[in-house]
């Protein structure tokens, strides 16, 4: 029992990081690809810009998640970047 919880305690943060990298990273990239539509450029150009930018953002997010000291920090960092992107993306979706 205790070894099981012990194991979960150890594996948990790693799993958390992997989820943050795979899902969190993609979510951030997707958000950015929508948020870019608030820029004052034509829609097709903005759409393409968002797609082009999404892969470096995804890769950067994954690197960030595995380079910080804890899983909590990894998630926090993603959330900090996601917040303004979410606001921008929200205004696009609402429009």
């Amino acid at each position: 029992m205790s070894s099981l919880t012990d194991r979960a305690w150890r594996v948990g943060p790693l799993v958390s990081r992997i989820v943050a990298a795979l899902a969190g990273g993609y979510a951030l990239a997707a958000l950015a690809s929508v948020a870019v539509l608030v820029l004052p450029i034509s829609k097709p150009q903005a759409v393409i810009t968002g797609m082009l930018a999404s892969f470096p953002i995804y890769a950067g997010a994954v690197i960030w998640v595995f380079s910080v000291r804890s899983a909590t920090r990894a998630w926090l960092g993603l959330a900090v970047v996601a917040t303004p992107l979410l606001v921008a993306a929200w205004s696009v979706w609402r429009a």
Partner: peptide, 30 residues
């Protein structure tokens, strides 16, 4: 990744491109 990006990250296109005219405009760029 760029060669297939419209498939991997369709979200901007889905949010912004709604009318057939807009679709045509985007397609003509690509």
């Amino acid at each position: 990744l760029v060669t297939l990006m419209a498939m991997y990250v369709p979200w901007g296109e889905r949010a912004a491109i709604k009318t057939p005219a807009e679709r045509q405009q985007l397609s003509a760029e690509l």
